[in-house]
Design a protein around this nucleic acid. Structure first.
Lengths: 203, 203
DNA sequence: GCGATTATGTACCGATCATTATGGAAACAG
DNA sequence: CTGTTTCCATAATGATCGGTACATAATCGC
C-alpha cells in the first residue's frame, strides 16, 4: 500500500526531463505571453511532441500554471526575501535592485511574466489573468504587512501609510518591468532604480 | 481638377458613421488588446459586417492604427497639455491627475491602450508593438525636453537630471495604468497619485 | 429609363488554434 | 516468451482566426 510514495517506473520511461521542459516552456510564456505562445512554439522549445506535453502537463493552461509556479519560485524569490530587510527603505531597495538584476539578465527574457499575463487579453486567457492578479494581490498584501510593521516602528513620515507606500512601490516595480519589456537599456533601468531610491520618503 | 477636395459621393452611400464605428473599435482594442480583439468582436461592436470593415479601414492592423490615432488624440491629449504647466512639479501633477481622471472614468475601459499594446505578444502583433513603443518614445522625449527646461531653470534638486526624472515619472504613470487595468479601486489609484505627489522631489 | 460605381450581406477561403485518436515502440512483471 | 503499461510519433479533429468572392442593393451622372 506504500507504492504511491516510492518511485516505481512502470511502463516505458519518459525520454525527456520534465523540469527542463518546463523551464523552456516558461521562457516561451515569458517572452510571448500566454496567448502569444502557441503549442508549436512550446513543443519546439521544449523539444517534445504535443501528446507528450499533454501527458506530462495536462493542457496549455495547466502548463502555464506550472510555469508560473516555477517563475515565482525561482525568479521572484527575491521579493519575499526582501521583506526581511531591517527598514522599509531597505525593503524597497532590495525589491528595486532585485527587480533590476532580474530585468538585466542576459540570458532571460525581459519583462515580468506577472505583468505580461495581467494585461488585457482575449476570453480564453481571462482565467489566467484573474489568477495572476490574485497572486499579485497576495504579494501586495505581504508588502503592506511589512510596511505596517515599519509604520508601527515609526519609520514612515507624516501623512504616509503602509498601503499608500506599498502601492507606490509596486507601481514603480511595474513601471520598471514594463520599461524593461519594452527594450529599455540597462542604464535607463539603473537610473530609474537610483532615482526611485533618491526620492524614497524617509522620516 | 478640384474634385479631389469636394465630397462627391458616387455609388451607394455608406450606411454607418465611420467615426462612430472607429470609436467602438477603439473600445474593443482598449479592453482586449490587439490580438485579443477578434474581427467578430470588432464587427459586433461596430455594428457592421466584415467586408464593410475592410472597405472602410483596410485591415485589422490599419484599423488598430486608426483607433490608436483616435485614442491619442482624444484620450491622451492631457499629456501634451500638461507640458505647458509652469514648473516640473506642476507638469507631473497634471500628468498624474490626468491619468487618474482617465482611468477612473465610468464609461471607458480601464488601463492604457499604449501599455496594453506594448507588452509581449505573438508574432502577428510585433509590428503593432514596435509602433506603440516608438510612439511612446516620442512622448517620453517630449517630457525629457520639458524637464530639461526645468533643469536649466534650476528647478531640479541636486543629483537629479531630466532624463532620470522623466523615466521615473513615466514608470509611475505606467504603474498607475497597470493597476487600473488590473481592477484597482478609485481610492487606490487616488492614493497612488497623492503619494507620488507627496514624494515628488523639489529643490 | 440607363450603365457606372460603391456598399452590403452571405457564405466561403486557407491557415492556424488547442486538443486528441491511433498505432507502434520501449520498458516492466509474470 | 506474453501481457501490461506507459511513452512517442503521425496525423487528424472541430473551432476559430484574419481576410475575400460573389451577388445584390442603392445611389450617382446621363
Amino acid at each position: 500500500m506504500e507504492t504511491a510514495t516510492c518511485t516505481a517506473p512502470k511502463g516505458r520511461p519518459r525520454e525527456f526531463c520534465v523540469d527542463e521542459a518546463l523551464g523552456q516552456a516558461l521562457r516561451v510564456f515569458w517572452s510571448k505571453g500566454y496567448e502569444g505562445a502557441s503549442l508549436t512554439d512550446l513543443t519546439d522549445a521544449m523539444g517534445i511532441t504535443r501528446p507528450s506535453l499533454y501527458a506530462a502537463f495536462g493542457n496549455k493552461e495547466a502548463l502555464f500554471r506550472k510555469a508560473l509556479d516555477l517563475y515565482e519560485r525561482e525568479k521572484l524569490c527575491y521579493m519575499s526575501l526582501a521583506l526581511d530587510a531591517p527598514t522599509a527603505r531597505a525593503v524597497a531597495e532590495r525589491l528595486l535592485r532585485g527587480a533590476l538584476e532580474m530585468q538585466t539578465s542576459d540570458f532571460e527574457p525581459r519583462g515580468c511574466l506577472r505583468v505580461i499575463s495581467s494585461v488585457a487579453c482575449g476570453v480564453e486567457a481571462e482565467s489566467i489573468r484573474d489568477e495572476v492578479i490574485a497572486r499579485r494581490k497576495s504579494s501586495s498584501d505581504a508588502l503592506i504587512k511589512r510596511f505596517e510593521k515599519a509604520e508601527a516602528a515609526g519609520e514612515l513620515p507624516e501623512h504616509m501609510n503602509a498601503e499608500a507606500l506599498s502601492g507606490y512601490l509596486i507601481a514603480l516595480l511595474q513601471g520598471l518591468a514594463l520599461q524593461a519589456g519594452a527594450g529599455a537599456s540597462r542604464e535607463e533601468l539603473e537610473r530609474l532604480v537610483e532615482t526611485s531610491l533618491t526620492v524614497w520618503p524617509t522620516k
